[in-house]
Design a binder for these strands. Structure first.
Lengths: 110, 110
DNA sequence: ACTATGTACTTAGTTATACTATGTATTTTA
DNA sequence: TAAAATACATAGTATAACTAAGTACATAGT
């Protein structure tokens, strides 16, 4: 039917929800980038391109919501683990409130 | 605190939700642009810039989700009323399903 | 030994969309 | 008569997801 519109729409919905989802997932435990992509795909069925995730992580770091550390592996490439900063935790709380609010508004309209 | 991040985030969340909200509101009855802005502000507390709404309406028309008609007023500037096309109604149904799905996923993460 | 696939991170360029600012025009209110 | 509200429109900017490509190592299959 109008699959193309729906597809574009999905992509636009991600702008905003992706950062929220990343912060929510990281609030449980720290993860490295590739693992985040897998985890989010598993939890939400949302596919995140690598070219989307890594720049997103850098923005969240610049905004002081996340910090990261390199962890050497016994074998293979080192992994960059991301975790919430204090400010990240506070901001996530606010985002949750805003999200709940938006949700209620839309539910009412539906 | 991190008001600037939250503000930018809100703006990003709109990309995607705005078109959804517009379609939801129009599914109840037809409205003209300026009225839509007022109605949505009233219902959702979301402020939509005119420079955001009118281009959005044109995109939705190009995508055949909406159509519009000019209605002369006895006094004042004519109004352009927007209404859902058949395809718009079908697409909105799909969007609702997708939204519910996303909502459930995020609720679980929260 | 070679190839494909999976893991892991990065960046350049494109596209879509909200925002700012500005412009036009009419009507109502102070 | 000036300001504010009503009503639509567009050009330019910023943001963020996507595509595509690249680097590097490990492992499984042939």
């Amino acid at each position: 039917m109008n699959d193309e519109f729906i597809h574009k729409w999905q992509s636009q919905v991600k702008k905003g929800t992706l950062s929220f989802i990343v912060l929510l997932v990281l609030s449980e435990r720290e993860l490295y980038g590739y693992e985040l992509i897998e985890k989010i795909k598993d939890l939400t069925k949302i596919d995140i391109a690598e070219g989307t995730l890594y720049p997103l992580m850098n923005r969240l770091k610049e905004d002081n919501l996340l910090d990261s550390k390199w962890v050497e592996q016994e074998t293979g490439i080192p992994r960059k683990y991301y975790f919430l900063t204090k400010q990240g935790k506070l901001t996530l709380k606010q985002m949750k409130l805003q999200w709940i609010n938006l949700q209620q508004v839309i539910t009412k309209l539906m």
